[in-house]
Structures are given as C-alpha cells and as structure tokens.
Lab assay of single mutants.
Amino acid sequence: MQAFVKTLTGKTITLEVEPSDTIENVKAKIQDKEGIPPDQQRLIFAGKQLEDGRTLSDYNIQKESTLHLVLR
C-alpha cells in the first residue's frame, strides 16, 4: 500500500509499505529515499510519536495515510 510522509519543509515522500511493517522498517525506507539516518527520524501520526517496535497496523495506519517526519 502507499503511505505518505510529510517533512517539515513541506516535501511529501511516497512510500510503499505494508500494514505489518514496523516503524523501524518505515524509517529504513525513508533513509533509502532521503538519506536521513533512522536515529534522527521521529514519525508522528494522529499527534502520537510512533515507536520503532510497533507496526503500522498497531497504529491503525491505512493506505494513503500521511505520517509527519520530524528530525531530532
């Protein structure tokens, strides 16, 4: 499924993900596309910070959801 990641600069990245993907996995995909190390990434969805060990389905993130990427 497709999900979108919006950065603070307003850029939107499109990712191909599965509901079973972990947040860690998603961060690795963002690193592949953008070169941002996962340890600098914080992903926010519905106002919550997403934890590495959880999956997209844990957070009820469905296709075409938009996550927000904040860098630390």
Rank of each mutant, 00 (worst) to 15 (best):
27 K>Y: 05
44 I>Q: 07
72 R>W: 13
45 F>W: 10
55 T>W: 03
24 E>A: 15
24 E>D: 08
51 E>I: 08
26 V>Q: 00
1 M>S: 04
2 Q>P: 07
69 L>M: 07
30 I>C: 01
26 V>T: 03
8 L>E: 15
67 L>K: 01
5 V>D: 02
62 Q>T: 14
32 D>E: 14
12 T>C: 10
15 L>F: 07
56 L>Q: 00
62 Q>F: 11
12 T>P: 03
61 I>D: 03
60 N>V: 05
4 F>H: 09
13 I>Y: 06
45 F>E: 01
47 G>L: 04
20 S>M: 10
10 G>S: 04
52 D>Y: 04
37 P>K: 07
59 Y>R: 00
40 Q>E: 12
17 V>M: 04
15 L>S: 00
15 L>W: 00
72 R>F: 12
54 R>S: 08
38 P>Q: 13
58 D>G: 04
12 T>L: 13
59 Y>L: 05
11 K>H: 11
68 H>F: 13
56 L>Y: 02
40 Q>C: 10
17 V>A: 03
34 E>A: 13
3 A>I: 15
37 P>R: 09
14 T>H: 08
13 I>N: 01
50 L>V: 04
54 R>P: 04
6 K>R: 11
6 K>W: 08
23 I>L: 05
21 D>N: 07
25 N>W: 09
2 Q>V: 15
28 A>H: 13
17 V>T: 03
10 G>I: 02
37 P>A: 09
16 E>K: 09
43 L>S: 00
60 N>S: 08
15 L>T: 01
30 I>S: 00
19 P>E: 08
21 D>G: 03
31 Q>L: 10
52 D>P: 06
38 P>C: 08
28 A>N: 11
60 N>A: 08
20 S>H: 12
29 K>N: 03
52 D>C: 05
14 T>S: 09
63 K>F: 08
21 D>M: 12
67 L>H: 02
60 N>L: 07
5 V>G: 01
58 D>V: 04
66 T>C: 06
70 V>Y: 14
53 G>P: 06
56 L>F: 04
17 V>G: 01
70 V>N: 05
29 K>F: 06
65 S>V: 13
44 I>N: 05
52 D>G: 06
26 V>W: 00
4 F>N: 05
69 L>K: 00
22 T>K: 08
62 Q>A: 10
64 E>F: 13
3 A>Y: 10
62 Q>P: 12
19 P>D: 07
69 L>H: 00
70 V>A: 09
29 K>S: 04
43 L>C: 01
62 Q>K: 12
39 D>K: 10
20 S>W: 14
38 P>V: 15
10 G>T: 03
23 I>P: 02
35 G>S: 05
48 K>S: 08
68 H>A: 06
47 G>Y: 05
10 G>L: 04
64 E>A: 08
45 F>G: 02
17 V>I: 07
44 I>V: 10
47 G>A: 04
64 E>T: 08
34 E>F: 11
36 I>T: 08
49 Q>D: 14
39 D>S: 12
51 E>T: 07
64 E>Q: 10
11 K>D: 08
27 K>L: 04
54 R>F: 14
64 E>D: 15
9 T>M: 11
66 T>E: 09
4 F>C: 05
33 K>E: 07
11 K>R: 11
13 I>S: 02
54 R>K: 15
4 F>W: 07
53 G>T: 10
68 H>I: 14
18 E>M: 15
52 D>V: 06
43 L>G: 00
46 A>S: 10
2 Q>Y: 13
1 M>L: 08
16 E>D: 11
44 I>F: 15
51 E>A: 08
42 R>W: 12
18 E>S: 15
16 E>Q: 12
36 I>C: 04
48 K>P: 01
44 I>W: 15
52 D>L: 05
35 G>F: 04
71 L>C: 06
20 S>Y: 10
24 E>F: 14
2 Q>F: 13
